[in-house]
Amino acid sequence: MKSWSNHLLAEPLEGLGRITLLARESIASLLTFKVAWRDLLYQIYFVGVKSQSVVLVTGAFTGMVLGAQTYFQFHKVKMDTATLAVVSVSMCSELGPVLTGLMVAGRVGAAIAAELGTMRVTEQIDALRTLATHPVDYLVVPRLMALHITLPLLTAEAIAVGIGAGYLVGVYLLGIDPTYSWYNMLRYTATTDVVVGITKAFIFGGIVALIGCYKGLYCGEGAQGVGRATTEAVVYSSIAILISNFFLTMTLGKLLHTL
């Protein structure tokens, strides 16, 4: 009974507490400028440049499928030229940030947890500490900052590619009128949709980095521990992205539309 309640309640609460402390320590480290700038640059390259193919493919095919599906439904009620507007609003505020976040969680979150987890089991993190280096300064903050910077940029790229691909499918494959499509897209896509999407991406970046770092830094012993940490980093950050997306949609929607 005790282990069951422990597994269900105490462990997740403990994890949440540790992630909060990790976030607090990271902010404190940022404010004292103890960041390893060279490592930050490498992490930006690793997260941003190395995720290009994943993000481009995700953005393009999502935009294409969304364009086609929307057209099939709208065509029945003679609203073909509203297709691109739906693609644009959906990509900007929901699909762009969420799908990019999930793809980056799979690629980068897993890599962070595996790298830090291996460093932990081979005592490299203890070695860092004996060399008077705080693991948060050296390992967590560059990854956190890199994801905060690059995920919004990758999201913007996915949005642009998604809309472009949706346009190509709609206009050249399905024969929608390009001028009205473009006009409707600009008319129905508000700046707030883009702001919401980019804000979400910024927050998702923090989620992926903190969960990946937490799972790596506190991973169990041996290869099994590293494997488990990697899987949990991807699963937990994906779930956290999906759940927080709902609350962000509600909060940001209310907030930005009342402004």
Partner: peptide, 16 residues
């Protein structure tokens, strides 16, 4: 971290 400036440690696995 300040106290550890006084220490050096060699780990069992070297931990390079």
């Amino acid at each position: 971290l300040k106290v550890r400036h006084r220490f050096g440690m060699l780990f069992q696995s070297a931990a390079l």
